[in-house]
Design a protein around this nucleic acid. Structure first.
Length: 273
DNA sequence: AAGCGGTCCTGTGTGC
DNA sequence: TGCACACAGGACCGCT
């Protein structure tokens, strides 16, 4: 669920709320996530203060004293919320991290596709899931040249290329579709058929779109909430995602949906070639 | 060997 | 109303 703008929103929230706070107690209620929650998870977090909160791709890194990092990925349905301790707990609250503020972070994930682990910062840098992440869309390396090179040597569909975390870190199905609409390119177009001009369009449009989405605090389709359990507003500004059958906001053609593998791809047959 | 499809899991929406 | 089924924002695994 949460893609770059949602994860960035959560990180921004938590950074302001958690920096300088100390972890008092940790409860693990469900260890069966994508990676099982480690035996020593609670012990390793206990007593440490938060230095900072960062995003890497779709991963949330809570950096702690003693060069440790608490790393979470929210999968499709995960939430990481900082709320009052008195607030009733909910089904699928899997991890509770209590702070010296009287509030607690809750890791909540009905589908359990996400993960939450603690490791040293040096181990984190060597961890394949982080180490192998591609270019961040806000990095200067995310250029038309990079996209052109990556695309031209691939037979895959461009939407799949954009969602490949080893090539570009942070994009998922919603934003990949929205980017391609703004760039005027069909999601089904094969990488090797992307020209220099199209690569420039994608490079130009991507950071702009993501900044807008962050400004609106992300897309709340159903599950997603920010770091204090509030909905985002970008769902009201999506132009193609989940709008199949509706009118294109630019040319009024009917938005189409096709299946690419196991997921939907949305596009305007007139605006996107 | 890159690229695709199936799979993990629960909740929600749709259609009969 | 109730039931069965399809589908969902991610990412890994294994097959071809």
């Amino acid at each position: 669920m949460p893609e770059l703008p949602e994860v960035e929103t959560i990180c921004g929230n938590l950074r302001g709320l958690l920096r300088g706070r100390r972890i008092i107690e940790v409860e693990v209620l469900e260890r069966r996530l994508r990676n099982p929650v480690g035996e020593n998870f609670a012990l390793e977090l206990q007593g440490r203060a938060v230095l900072d909160v960062e995003r890497k791709g779709k991963y949330i890194l809570v950096l702690l004293e003693g060069k440790m990092a608490w790393v979470s990925h929210l999968g499709m349905s995960g939430k990481l919320i900082y709320v009052d301790r008195e607030r009733p707990r909910e089904r699928h609250d899997h991890i509770i991290v209590r702070f010296d503020s009287g509030r607690e972070v809750r890791y909540h994930d009905p589908r359990r596709f996400g993960l939450s682990v603690v490791m040293s910062v040096s181990a984190l840098d060597r961890w394949p899931q982080i180490r192998d992440l591609g270019v961040d869309p806000f990095d200067h390396q995310f250029s038309s040249g990079y996209l052109y090179t990556v695309a031209r040597t691939s037979r895959r569909r461009i939407v799949d290329i954009l969602m490949d975390q080893k090539l570009v870190a942070g994009l998922g199905n919603i934003y990949a579709n929205e980017i391609l609409f703004r760039a005027g390119i069909r999601p089904t177009r094969r990488g090797w058929r992307i020209g220099r001009k199209s690569a420039m369009k994608i490079a130009h449009v991507t950071p702009k779109l993501l900044r807008e989405a962050i400004h609106w605090r992300g897309t709340s389709f159903s599950d997603y909430r920010d770091g204090e359990d509030r909905e985002g507003e970008f769902q009201n500004r999506l132009q193609v995602y989940n709008r199949d059958g509706k009118d294109c906001l630019i040319c009024s053609s009917r938005i189409k949906k096709v299946r690419i593998g196991n997921r939907g791809a949305f596009y305007c047959p007139r605006c996107q070639k």
